[in-house]
């Protein structure tokens, strides 16, 4: 482990000495600021100065992935991995790129490699888990979510684990994972929404409505308004049919 950290530090130092590093750094800042065209321009400059600069190649791939240009991302990552087959982040992104492109067998293979290169990377464990889940290997998936949560209990990981536990009807465990997620990120719309679903299935519509309303009021998450409205229809159905009907109308309004 110490050797690995030493090598990473050594490689980072090498990168910083590269003639393309300054342009890469600028590109990264522009990417963070969501100024994508300028970021690409800067990256191209960086790669002209050093076509083997791994951080620039991985950033280029990251940008391509955000634009669903999976083939471009793949090419860039392959160039990075040609320079260094053990470049941990490039290897992870290479696997992630296959996952996002729905090429699950290759995603599994590459994310396993990424885990071997960097066993403490929680993201690699998470996405390998998601890949296994998509392939129907639920036991492996759950084990990897646990491992990812142990390494770094990010909300994203806690949600992935909770969703699988929910599907397995392990509702109490699921609620535990979700409460952890809420604790970690009280403004997570998804965590509140998933918790509401658990309450609804446990025949506790009042608690489901409370969590659902909270989710609806939050912005940060992937759960769509329509999904939350559908939950609230069912939560209010018996106790407040007027409110239930309002949520149904809101969904219909969103469909227009």
């Amino acid at each position: 482990m110490r050797l690995a950290l030493f090598l990473v530090a050594l490689l980072a130092a090498q990168d910083q000495r590269s003639p393309g590093y300054a342009a890469y750094k600028k590109a990264n800042e522009l990417f963070v600021a969501k100024r994508i065209p300028e970021a690409i321009q800067s990256l191209q400059q960086s790669l002209k100065q050093d076509e083997k600069l791994i951080p620039a190649l991985t950033l280029y791939a990251k940008i391509a992935m955000t634009m669903n240009r999976f083939e471009l991302a793949k090419d860039s990552l392959e160039r990075a991995l040609e320079v260094d087959a053990n470049a941990a982040y490039a290897r992870f992104l290479y696997g992630l790129n296959f996952y996002l492109a729905n090429d699950l067998p290759h995603a599994q293979q590459q994310l396993e490699l990424a885990r071997r290169v960097n066993p403490i990377d929680a993201r690699a464990a998470l996405y390998l888990g998601l890949t296994h889940e998509s392939l129907g290997h639920t036991d492996q998936a759950m084990e990897l979510y646990r491992e990812s949560a142990r390494l770094d209990a990010q909300v994203e990981t806690l949600l992935a684990g909770a969703r699988l536990l929910y599907l397995q009807n392990r509702l109490d465990e699921c609620a535990q994972w979700l409460r952890k997620a809420v604790q970690r990120e009280p403004n997570s719309r998804d965590a509140h929404f998933e918790l509401a679903r658990v309450y609804l299935l446990q025949d506790n519509p009042a608690a489901a409505a409370k969590e659902g309303e909270q989710a609806l009021a939050l912005k940060d998450g992937t759960a769509k308004d329509a999904q939350i409205h559908y939950l609230l229809i069912r939560a209010y159905r018996l106790t407040n049919p007027v409110k239930a009907a309002q949520h149904a109308e809101l969904i219909k309004g969103l469909e227009q």
Binding site: R197, Y230, I233, R234, A248, K252
Partner: peptide
């Protein structure tokens, strides 16, 4: 929608 039969859980 109202009957809870329109969408996945």
């Amino acid at each position: 929608l109202e009957a809870g039969a329109a969408l996945r859980d």
